[in-house]
Design a protein around this nucleic acid. Structure first.
Lengths: 211, 211
DNA sequence: CTTCTAATGTACGAACTGGTACGTTAGTTA
DNA sequence: TAACTAACGTACCAGTTCGTACATTAGAAG
């Protein structure tokens, strides 16, 4: 309750946050079973004991990591404003935001991969996540409705399918960067090709939607 | 050299194959560090000792798994014949073959994820893989050339980019099945939606390519 | 200043896990 | 049938890794 931040040697909140920060990197990089509790502790200014003190165990720590990662990305998505754009431009804008998100949060992408590798069994235990998650799709649905009413878009498309189309392109580019680089000698995240792929995604989606 | 197959108690080739079969499932399901050598051995008709006898260690076994998985999928790709189809139909056919492949080989998809999680560091040690891998893209490039010559396709598209477009859609659907199911309550592999997604992919790609 | 507790650190144990030393057997060859 | 080798099995070790018992301290409360 005091204001002497920065010099306190005991700060529960700070310790918790730091543990989750480091754990996010560790789990993203090595997977659930590959991640080492000792390693996470070592890269923190505190000790392994604190992980068990605050979180209870490796699994609960992973849960905390997952929950925070999703909460962050959904919060960012909610800030997008597309109402002042025409439907085509709005869809393109949404695709670009998703594109940028994926590029800016590689650790998140990796966590999604880790969670899928475990059949999403942890995610089901975090009820809060499901509530958070419709925001991006809801935005998209609104835009699609406008486009249909206007007569610009075909009217047999589902918002979730379009979201999947966009996500898959963005996800793949980040997630499979390494095998793609090894097999085809092309770095999908090379800065010089960034604009090209961003435009390509927009063309792809709007092209599909148009009547 | 004898012909008494089926009753031999000692069959090196059979033992090797069986180990790789089981290891493929184990590595795909649990990841590299999550996979247990003891578990692989237990699910085989032989013992852990044989894994070390034939492969040398966990890492070399993983390499053998990876190499065989890629060899299989590339071999299947090579069998596609698109020369008798017009460019648009041929592209659609290639997309569908990729789509079907991904659906039929979930273990392969998971291995790709596992390998990317490790920055594809093992793949670089399997030189044979890189040679194998251009087949799908070469086929596609030929079709794109025909389409351009014919005037049907835009002429600013790269075959590798189109291949990426197709792969990303197919990959995502299989790889992220579980988180998608948990977050949006939609099973991307549900049989009743299979045809829908297959058509959607074809529309998407051919729509993008057309002038 | 004393007391009390949340927060923190140290040291260690039990189970797991990759790997190996050593012995055995099937099947081939002379 | 005797000798030889590839193929196989058992038992075990050494290092790792999650988790915990126990001791300690910072800082708030009275």
């Amino acid at each position: 309750m005091t204001a002497q931040t920065g010099e306190r040697r005991r700060d529960a909140e700070r310790t918790r946050t730091e543990i989750v920060d480091v754990a996010t990197e560790e789990f993203a990089e090595r997977g659930y079973s590959g991640a080492r509790v000792d390693e996470i502790a070592a890269r923190t200014r505190t000790t392994k004991r604190m992980i068990y003190y605050y979180f209870g165990g490796k699994e609960q720590l992973y849960l905390a990591v997952l929950e925070r990662a999703y909460a962050e990305i959904r919060a960012a998505e909610r800030t997008v404003d597309v109402d002042h754009l025409d439907p085509v431009a709005a869809v393109r804008r949404l695709a670009e935001v998703t594109f940028d998100h994926h590029e800016a949060h590689p650790a998140f992408i990796k966590l999604v991969g880790v969670e899928n590798a475990q059949h999403a069994k942890h995610m089901n235990h975090v009820a809060r996540l499901v509530d958070l998650n419709s925001s991006a799709v809801d935005l998209l649905r609104g835009v699609l409705d406008r486009g249909r009413a206007e007569g610009t878009f075909r009217d047999d498309v589902d918002a979730l399918d379009v979201h999947m189309m966009i996500s898959s392109f963005c996800f793949f580019r980040v997630a499979n960067r390494h095998t793609w680089g090894a097999l085809f000698d092309r770095d999908l995240l090379d800065e010089s090709r960034r604009g090209h792929y961003r435009t390509m995604l927009g063309d792809l989606v709007t092209g599909y939607l148009r009547k």
